[in-house]
Structure formats: C-alpha cells, structure tokens
C-alpha cells in the first residue's frame, strides 16, 4: 500500500539518487500498461518482450545519465519511448520482412536441403558405378567418342580433330554409343535413377 502512495516523480528522483528498489516499483507499477500497449501494436509476444526491454534500457540509461527532466510525466515519457521503438521495429521490418512461419504456409515446403542424405549418396555412387561399367562394355571407337564428349566436354569438332575422323563419323559413333547403352540397360533392366 505504501508503494502506491509514493508518486512516480519521487520514485524517479529516489532512483536517480541510487535507490534501485525505486526502479522495481516503477516497473511493477507500469509494466502491464506499457507491455499491453506494445503488444497491441506488434501482436507478437516475443517482439513485445524485446521492445519492452529496450524501452526500459533506454529509460535506465537516460535516468542514470541525469538527462531526464522530471515534469511529472514519467509514464507518458516511457510510452513515447516505446512508441518510437515500435515505429523503429516496423521500419526495420519493412526493409527486411520477417517470416514467422506461423501461418498455414510453411516456408520449408518450398525450401529444401539439396544435399543428399546417406541413402541417396549410396544410390548415386551405385548408379555411377553401373554407368561406368556400361561404358566399359561399349566398342572402343564409340567409348572413345562418348568419353571425350561427356566427360571431357569436348565439341565434335575437337573430337574429330583428335581422333582423325570426320565430324559426321564422330556424331555417328556417339549416336551408336547411346543406342547401345540404352539396349544394354533395357536388356538387363538396370535402373539408373536416384
């Protein structure tokens, strides 16, 4: 009861003189009003908590620096600080919108981790081994063209220069290499997908 009788102005001046318990009284007295005010603007408990904390950090620093002019308006002053911080919060959020993931739409349904999990990594390795073995089965000239084209990324012009055959021959060998690979894959029912 005693606490309610002491005005904000006296508590502020006691606090400035070093009475820490005066601040506690002030916070307890006004916390609900200030917090509810902030919450009514931001509609987020955590953000309201942050702004409430920043508000009082400002209050404490101003009071301790002796920069506060007591005019019997402690609560309106604190409300003004919190109001300004709410505006700052919305300005910052406009520049960099926050995604709270609270609604029906989940951001993780769009974003995913592209790296392979253990199972897929093993499958990938097996598929690559299978492909290597299939390529080994091809006739030498077709294999040579296919390796140059796919693994060395050479153009058919370069391949024809390197192997000493015409471009058309190189193209034909590539074509037969692919046809033969498909044939072997179909024949043995090899699955080459991850």
């Amino acid at each position: 009861m005693q606490q309610q009788l002491i005005t904000d102005a006296i508590l502020v001046s006691n606090y400035i003189k070093g009475d820490e318990s005066a601040l506690e009284t002030l916070i307890v007295r006004h916390k609900q009003k200030i917090y509810s005010f902030i919450y009514s603007k931001v509609f987020d408990r955590d953000v309201a908590e942050d702004i409430f904390q920043d508000t009082f950090i400002k209050v404490i620093r101003t009071l301790k620096r002796g920069a506060y002019n007591e005019e019997g308006k402690f609560l309106p002053w604190v409300m003004r600080i919190s109001h300004n911080l709410v505006i700052d919060f919305f300005r910052k959020n406009n520049r960099m919108p926050k995604f709270d993931n609270a609604g029906e739409f989940s951001i993780f349904s769009v974003l995913s981790d592209d790296s392979l999990n253990a199972e897929k990594a093993i499958i990938k390795e097996q598929v690559e081994n299978d492909v290597r073995r299939l390529v080994e089965e091809l006739p030498g000239d077709q294999k040579e063209v296919l390796l140059m084209r796919i693994y060395n990324d050479m153009s058919f012009k370069e391949i024809s220069d390197r192997t000493g055959v015409s471009i058309n021959t190189a193209l034909g060998r590539m074509r037969y290499a692919l046809i033969n690979l498909r044939k072997i894959i179909d024949k043995h029912n090899i699955v080459l997908t991850n």
Partner: peptide, 14 residues
Amino acid sequence: NNLNPKGETVRFLL
C-alpha cells in the same frame, strides 16, 4: 489489456 512481460525480462532490467 491483461498482458504482462515475463518475470525474466523484469529481472534482467533490474
């Protein structure tokens, strides 16, 4: 209108 900050926040401020 009946919202209060966490006790933790108030303790931090003190």
